[in-house]
C-alpha cells in the first residue's frame, strides 16, 4: 500500500519535471538505511524511490526523524545505503569504496550546511578554494581564480579576504554556497541552509539558489519551513523513512520579488514612523 503510494508519488514527481526534460542526475530504487542501536533496529529509510533530473529544484520536507537527513547523507555520498541502489550521474554509488566516495563528493556534489561550516580564522577565498585543493581529477584549474569567480557569482567579490568572524550569517552562507559551486558540481545539496538565518536573510539566500537554478544547476534542499519550500519547484515530503508526497510546487514564489516587496514595506514603515 505504502510502496504503491510512494511509487505513484515518484511518477508524479517525474511528470512534474518533464517540462525541464534534463538528464536524470539522481535515481534511487528501494533505498533503505537501517541503524542498529543495541538490540533495536531503526529503519531511517525504508524503500525510497526518487529520481531527480538536471535543472530541478527540490525541497525535501518532513519532521525530525522522518529520514530526510539520512536521505541527504546518502545522496551526498557521506553514507551508504543498507539496501537498494543509488545512481548519481549513472554511477552506482553503493558499490564504491571510501576514496571513490570522497572523489564523488569532491567532483560532483556541492554541500551547503545549516551552520555554514566554514573554517574559522580563514579568509573567504581560502575557504572557497578548499575543495579544489583536494581535486585529484587532474583537470587544470587555477584554483585561486576559480575561487574568486565563485565568490563574484554569490556577490561577495569585495569580501574575499574577510574571515568568517567578520561577516554576517547571510554572507557566511554565501561563502559556503560559493565553496559548493567552485568545483562545478552536477548537484548542490543544502541541509537547512536557512535554519540559522533570519527571515529576510533567508529570502536573500533563496534568491541566490533560485539564480543558480535558473543557470541550470540542480539544487536539493532539506527544510522544515514551508515558506522556504515555496521557492523550490518540487516538494518531497517524508515520514517514517518513506516518501509520502512528491509533487510540484503550485504557487511558486520568486525570492527576488519578495525581497523587493520587503524592502518596499520597510520604506513604508520608515515613512509611517517618520509621520
Amino acid at each position: 500500500m505504502t510502496t504503491l503510494r510512494a511509487s505513484r508519488a515518484a511518477d508524479r514527481g517525474i511528470a512534474s519535471v518533464s517540462t525541464d526534460a534534463g538528464d536524470v542526475v539522481i535515481r534511487t530504487t528501494g533505498l533503505t538505511r537501517v541503524y542498529a542501536t543495541g538490540r533495536t533496529e531503526v529503519r531511517a529509510l525504508d524503500g525510497v524511490d526518487v529520481s531527480v533530473r538536471e535543472g530541478e529544484f527540490v525541497a525535501v520536507m518532513g519532521a525530525s526523524g522522518s529520514g530526510k537527513s539520512t536521505l541527504m547523507n546518502i545522496l551526498g555520498c557521506l553514507d551508504k545505503p543498507t539496501a537498494g541502489s543509488y545512481e548519481l550521474d549513472g554511477i552506482r554509488v553503493e558499490e564504491l569504496d571510501k576514496n571513490a566516495l570522497a572523489e564523488i563528493r569532491n567532483q560532483r556534489i556541492g554541500f551547503v550546511f545549516q551552520s555554514f561550516n566554514l573554517l574559522a580564522r580563514t579568509a573567504a577565498i581560502d575557504n572557497v578554494e578548499l575543495p579544489l585543493l583536494y581535486d585529484r581529477s587532474g583537470r587544470k584549474i587555477d584554483s585561486r581564480k576559480a575561487a574568486a569567480e565563485a565568490l563574484e557569482r554569490v556577490g561577495l567579490a569585495d569580501r574575499m579576504d574577510h574571515e568568517p568572524s567578520e561577516m554576517s550569517g547571510g554572507e557566511q552562507q554565501r561563502v559556503a554556497i560559493a565553496r559548493a559551486l567552485v568545483g562545478q558540481p552536477s548537484l548542490i545539496l543544502a541541509d537547512e541552509p536557512t535554519g540559522n538565518l533570519d527571515s529576510r536573510t533567508s529570502v536573500d539566500v533563496m534568491t541566490l539558489f533560485q539564480d543558480l537554478n535558473d543557470q541550470g544547476i540542480t539544487v536539493i534542499i532539506v527544510t522544515h519551513e514551508p515558506e522556504i519550500a515555496r521557492y523550490c519547484k518540487r516538494i518531497i515530503r517524508m515520514r517514517d523513512g518513506r516518501v509520502i508526497v512528491d509533487e510540484p510546487v503550485r504557487d511558486r514564489r520568486c525570492a527576488r520579488d519578495d525581497l523587493e516587496r520587503l524592502a518596499y514595506l520597510d520604506e513604508q514603515n520608515v515613512a509611517e514612523v517618520a509621520v
Partner: peptide, 16 residues
C-alpha cells in the same frame, strides 16, 4: 573534529 568533517565532506580522503 568539525573542521575534519568539513574537509572530508568536500572530498578530502582520510589519507589527506
Amino acid at each position: 573534529t568539525r573542521e575534519i568533517g568539513v574537509r572530508l565532506s568536500i572530498g578530502a580522503r582520510g589519507s589527506d
